[in-house]
């Protein structure tokens, strides 16, 4: 039965990756939805992964206590850096968030308790698969409900024209900070879940390339609804599994997807936008 275990093992990893990448794509979606290109998702994921791993390995805390706390850490980080960072616009924000990610990577590499370049291993595989998908489903549901409400409307308005949205009374700063925190929660969750399903994490799992890969998920799917980025993540995760030759050039594919999506598919593959109001039937 060795082959069966093998199969299970292979697909177990794939199933975890699909769920985790779905969460990461949503974490990107949240900030793109307000028109911000913040590339800190991989960094938030790293914070969630490292803090959860430390709590499990060093403190021996149970997973159900570790999981929520591992979202708190990235949120605290988002709150700490959010004030000055979110004043930045456009490319400056993108560059600053890449910089923050690199600072964190430097910290992982140089702090002994974080394992340096070797990373941390022996993390208990305590995250059940169903939990990953339950979290993903919950995230989609919450984002769907919020997206259809006045909050979603204000977010869309911000993305389309910040000045006009401001003049309509949208508190731009608060929305930016709140979306950054939501993004941090989702990415931190993804980090903790993936750390506790693969037993090993290292500093390069959360650097520049993962940050760009997460962007490719959201751009391929689009941001018309929370389903779109998840679709993008799944396609980009599955493709190299189905088309084996693609596995070697996975990053090439991710990069090319971004180029093609921005140039030719500005609304993503799933261009369908969630309706905020259904046109009422013919009036009586």
């Amino acid at each position: 039965m060795a082959w069966f275990d093998d199969l299970l093992f292979t697909y177990q990893n794939l199933a975890v990756a699909l769920g985790v990448n779905g969460l990461l794509a949503l974490s990107m979606y949240v900030v793109l939805a307000v028109g911000q290109l913040s590339l800190g998702q991989a960094a938030f994921m790293g914070l969630g992964a490292y803090s959860s791993a430390l709590m499990s390995l060093q403190l021996g805390w149970p997973f159900w206590a570790v999981l929520p706390l591992s979202c708190v850490v990235p949120v605290l980080f988002a709150l700490a850096v959010g004030g000055p960072t979110l004043r930045l616009n456009g490319v400056y924000l993108a560059i600053a968030t890449i910089g923050l990610g690199e600072v964190l990577r430097g910290v992982y590499l140089n702090v002994d308790v974080l394992g340096g370049a070797m990373g941390l291993s022996g993390i208990p595989e305590a995250a059940p698969l169903w939990l990953i998908y339950a979290m993903l489903a919950l995230a989609v549901l919450v984002l769907w409900q919020v997206g259809k409400s006045g909050i979603g409307r204000a977010m869309e308005a911000m993305r389309l024209d910040e000045t006009a949205a401001l003049s309509m009374g949208v508190n731009i700063r608060r929305y930016r900070l709140a979306t950054l925190c939501a993004s941090a929660v989702l990415a931190g969750l993804a980090g903790a879940l993936s750390a506790h399903s693969t037993d090993f994490i290292g500093p390069n799992d959360f650097g520049f390339e993962p940050a760009v890969t997460i962007l490719s998920f959201a751009l391929l799917g689009g941001i018309g609804s929370p389903f779109a980025p998840v679709l993008g993540a799944w396609l980009l995760t599955l493709l190299p599994e189905v088309l084996r030759p693609l596995a070697d050039v996975r990053l090439v594919m991710n990069g090319a997807v971004i180029v093609v999506a921005v140039l030719f598919l500005p609304r993503g593959l799933l261009a369908w936008r969630m309706p905020r109001h259904v046109r009422p039937g013919r009036a009586a």
Binding site: V212, L215, L219, L251, N254, G255, I258, A261
Partner: peptide, 10 residues
């Protein structure tokens, strides 16, 4: 920015 980001990764 995004186009060149994707291109350079590729």
């Amino acid at each position: 920015l995004m186009v060149t980001l994707g291109a350079v990764l590729a």
